[in-house]
Structures are given as C-alpha cells and as structure tokens.
Design a protein around this nucleic acid. Structure first.
Lengths: 194, 194
DNA sequence: GTCTATAAGATGATAGAC
DNA sequence: GTCTATCATCTTATAGAC
C-alpha cells in the first residue's frame, strides 16, 4: 500500500507533490515522479491539474488554508503567549522531523525566481500571515510580562521566523537532525528569560 | 560587454554558474543557460566540466576557498569580536544586496536531496567551518565581556547562522529587501546589549 | 579550446479511445 | 477519470572537425 493512498486522486496528487517540493524543490520533481509514486499516468495528473503552475497554485492554497487553520487552533486554545510560540515552532519541528522536510514556503522562497508569479504571490502571503500571527503573540507576551525583548513585536516576529526557516535549512545542509530543535528551543528559552 | 567577461573561460563559467545557482538553484539552470550568457556553446562548457556534477564540485571548492579567505582576512585585521561578527554578517548582506542572491550553500542546502553526493559534502563542510569560526568569535567576545548570551558559544553560533540564512530566505520570499538587514542588525544589537 | 552535429532521455503537455 | 499514443522542447552529454 502506497503512503498516500487515501482521499481523492486530486488530494493524493497534492500529498505527493507537497512532499516532493519540501524534499526536492519545485524544480526537483516532475509529473513522471508523481505518476510513478501514485501508480497512475502523467496524463491523469494533467486531467486534475492542466499545468504544473496550476498544481503549484492549488498546493499553496491548500497549504495556506491548513496552516491558517492550525494557527487558529493554537490561538483558540487560549494558552499563554509563550506556549503559543512554542506550538508554532512545534509545527515546524514536526515538519522537519518528517524526513528532514523544509517548510513548503521556505523551500519555494529559495526557488522564487523560477516560480510562476501566482505561486510566488502565495509564498509572500504565507510569510506575511505568519509574521502577523507571531507579532500578535509576542506583543501579548510582552504586555503580560511573560517575555522580554528589545524593539517592536514585529521586529521580533521577523527574527523568530528567520530563526525557524534558517535552522531548517542549516540542519538539512549539515545533515544534523538535532540542530533544528536545539536552535528553536534556545530561542524560546532566551525569549522567556531575557 | 557581458557581465562576466574577465578571466579564463573556466572562471567565467563558474561566475555565471554561481550567480544562477544563487538566484535559481542547482536545478533551475542548464548548460544552455550558461552557454547563452557566455556566448559559447554547451559543448565548450563540457570541455571544462565534463558533467554538471563536476561543475558543482568545482563551484563549491572555489566558493569555500574564497569564503575561508574572507574569514581569515577578517580575523587577521584583529578587530574586537563584535566587529568580526558584524563583518561576517556583512558578507551575507553584500550577497543579498546583489540581486537578492542567497548564500550559495543556503540555496544548495534546500536542494540537497537532489545533489551529487560530493556537492552535498561540500555544503556540509561550509556550515561546519562557519559555525566554528563564529563560535570562536563569540567565545572571545563573551570572555572579554564585550557581548552577553546564555548557553555555549557553539549554540549561539548555530543560532546566528540560522538567523542569517533564514533572513535571506524569508526576505526573498516576502520580496522585502530591507528585511535581511533589519534582522541581522537586531540580532547583533541584542548580542551587545544582552 | 571551441565548434557543429547528434543522440538518448527527461519533461510538460495534448488528442482521442475507453 | 484514466488510459495509450504522441508531441515539441529541454537537458545532459559525446564524437569528431577545425
């Protein structure tokens, strides 16, 4: 039984495509790769997604909707701000632990010069939303004296995002799986005790 | 006059290849792209580099040698540790300011699953050397009470490297050129005043 | 050292049968 | 909705002339 054998064909295509983008990049996989893994023909993939750009856009839209939903879930639980940030980092940690996968948008960001314009726009929105959500949590934490940092909540949100994305990239390049977790935890610890 | 018209053909090939990897990725350019920009034929490129893997290895060896030389230059000037770190960040800033280029190894790190094993090994060494150099500067700065941070110099070096690599990735994805500089400066300021 | 010519395979995509 | 068949183009690479 294949790893992505649940759901509609359309969803299964997106499942495999997402994993391949996160491991090999947008330019690192082909319709043939998808077809082979799914046990179908490339023509069937073109039925669901006429072009690779269509597939890319659909992938990003699903990913962003899911990510937004996860952030809403974290916010809804109403834990303290530091816990919310820890859970945000946990999303990235879970991804990296799954076969050293990068954040989908971190990977696409690197390749942005080669992407269809629509896909690049989705990547941009992902980071804007993430930065906004992080800034809210950081501002709340600072106001409640649960965390301390110099400068604006927005500046700190940008730093946190850079730390998480960068830690994934370097951890992968160094082939040191524990690297990501170490950096993420150090950052959160510093935020608490600063 | 082409942008890379100085030096031997071999060097000019490497110049163009490096820029293309840093902007489009290893899987985002072809021998045809190189040939077109250089005004030669793909067969001529194969004369200098029989395979793309050979080109990749040569590119990384040159890049690492140059980077090591720059780090030695910074160390040789013997400024205080914080200044050394600022200059390290300056190397990355200069790269990003040149057409939003990523760190060569940051880009290749994302694509590591698709790279020839030899190239992946070079990427790994790049990060190991960088981490070591940064840890030395951080340890010296802490000892001299010029900077303050919790935990080991190695942990802090990993964090700094993640910040720089991640800031490049996010800045590119958000198409916000100032993002990188902001994050890098905030990090250095915090190191000083912590 | 660079060229022309060429080739095998990969890639993105379409037409039309079932 | 999936298939076979086919396509033009791109990509990496080689042989041999100049």
């Amino acid at each position: 039984m294949k790893s992505a054998s649940r759901g509609s064909t359309r969803e299964r295509i997106l499942d495999v495509a997402q994993r391949l983008v996160q491991t090999r990049g947008y330019n690192g996989f082909s319709f043939h790769d998808l077809a082979k893994e799914l046990g179908i023909r490339t023509a069937s993939i073109h039925y669901h997604f006429p072009t690779k750009a269509d597939l890319g856009v659909a992938l990003l839209q699903r990913y962003r909707a899911r990510f937004r939903s996860e952030l809403e879930g974290i916010s809804a639980k109403g834990g303290d701000p530091l816990r919310r940030l820890t859970q945000f980092a946990g999303l990235f940690e879970r991804t990296f632990k799954t076969g050293n996968q990068l954040c989908l948008c971190g990977m696409l960001s690197a390749e942005v010069a080669t992407l269809p314009q629509e896909v690049a726009g989705e990547v941009e929105h992902f980071f804007e939303e993430s930065e906004g959500w992080l800034a809210d949590a950081l501002a709340a934490g600072k106001k409640a004296h649960k965390m301390a940092f110099a400068g604006s909540a927005n500046a700190q949100a940008r730093m946190f995002l850079a730390v998480l994305e960068g830690a994934m990239v370097v951890a992968r390049g160094m082939r040191r799986t524990a690297y990501f977790q170490g950096v993420a935890r150090d950052y959160l610890a510093k935020l608490k005790h600063a």
